[in-house]
Amino acid sequence: MRAMVREEYGAPLEPRDLPEPRLGADGVLVEVRAAGVDQGVWHVVEGLPYAVRLAGFGVRRPKRPVPGLDVAGVVAAVGPAVTGLRVGDEVFGAADGAFAQFAASDPGRLARKPQRTTFAQAATVASSGVAALQGLRDAGRLRAGQRVLVLGAAGGVGTFAVQIAKALGAEVTGVCSTAKTDVVRSLGAADVIDYTKGEPAGQWHLVLDTGGARPLRALRRLLTPSGTLVIVGAERGGRWLQGTDRQLRAGLFGGLGRPRMAALMSRVAPEPLQTLREMLDDGRVTPVIDRTFGLEEAGAAIAYMRSAARTGKVALTL
């Protein structure tokens, strides 16, 4: 099979011919039709922050040469213990080494692909869509009728969060740059704030920060006394804590006093995938894809995903 590989952290991704992944008894082999590109992929490719390496990805060099997590495709084979999926099923979710023609997963990280979505759209859901859902519903305890502020509303998680919050009955305010205000409004935001012209002012029941750099103290001032601040991530913090520094502080001090703070550690699992599948199938949520790239353009796709020009998601198509 064709796959994108790097043997060292920070090395360019290069196309290689590799054997197909081997399956265990409960394994699922997915013929990849599309793979999502998000910040998590960049962290794993670069090995940053260093905590990523200590989390099991390999201290000196990557344990898995093929990166990629979010996937959509067709089941090519299943292990003898798998009962919920069959060869030929169209699926989406997460898999190991999604930047390849075939990737291995298990039934707990896959769901049947929504009929209304393309493979490219479905491939962008697992990381960003699940993070948005769990950030709003679980960590944020969102209830219908509440007011929600989404910071980074035009980003990968943000475009899902605006739509999911509205689907859950919230009144949504989105924060983004000038060029992206129309997109955020089209997703269902009742109000859109252009951060180049001024900072948010007011109080919300829930503030979901999907990757900004605002101090936690300033964010808490945007909450009602019983409100909740949820930190999804941020690309700050240096080589040791990049993307995690504010999450760690929110987790450590979030339970002290009011309003509360919560750090999100999202997890791809059957229930959130099924909930998102229903929202995608009935049209309440539609993935926003800025650009698609071919498999061998994976390096360019990651670079574009990290650029300020990008709106929504980026995907590889095979």
Score class of each variant (00 low, 15 high):
Gly79Pro: 12
Ala98Ile: 07
Phe99Tyr: 15
Leu48Pro: 00
Val125Phe: 07
Ala201His: 06
Phe253Thr: 14
Gln274Gly: 14
Thr286Ala: 14
Arg22Glu: 14
Phe92Arg: 11
Glu14Val: 10
Pro67Ser: 09
Ala161Arg: 03
Val66Glu: 03
Leu54Cys: 00
Arg277Leu: 08
Met4Gly: 06
Pro200Gly: 02
Gly211Leu: 07
Ala34Ile: 05
Pro200Ala: 04
Arg137Pro: 04
Gly237Ser: 09
Ala35Gln: 03
Val59Gly: 00
Thr83Leu: 07
Glu235Ser: 13
Gly156Arg: 03
Leu252Asn: 07
Gly47Glu: 01
Gly174Asp: 00
Glu7Tyr: 12
Phe57Val: 00
Gln134Asn: 10
Arg2Lys: 15
Asp70Gln: 08
Leu133Gln: 06
Thr173Cys: 03
Arg141Ala: 12
Pro270Ile: 11
Ala144Asp: 08
Leu110Arg: 09
Gly227Gln: 04
Arg260Leu: 02
Leu295Met: 09
Pro200Trp: 08
Ala123Asn: 07
Arg112Ala: 06
Arg221Val: 01
Pro80Glu: 12
Ala250Val: 06
Glu14Met: 03
Gly188Thr: 03
Val184Thr: 02
Gly24Arg: 13
Ala103Phe: 11
Val314Trp: 14
Gln134Thr: 12
Glu20Thr: 10
Val207Arg: 09
Thr210Tyr: 08
Thr196Gly: 02
Val314Gln: 11
Gly56Phe: 09
Ala213His: 14
Val75Trp: 10
Arg306Cys: 01
Asp245Gly: 08
Lys313Pro: 01
Gly233Leu: 01
Leu222Met: 06
Glu7Ala: 07
Ala165Cys: 08
Gln39Glu: 09
Gly58Met: 06
Leu229Lys: 06
Leu206Met: 10
Arg221Leu: 07
Gln115Lys: 15
Pro80Ala: 14
Phe119Trp: 14
Gly254Asn: 13
Ala167Trp: 05
Glu14Ser: 02
Gly251Lys: 15
Leu264Cys: 11
Thr210Leu: 05
Ala218Leu: 13
Ala262Thr: 06
Phe119His: 15
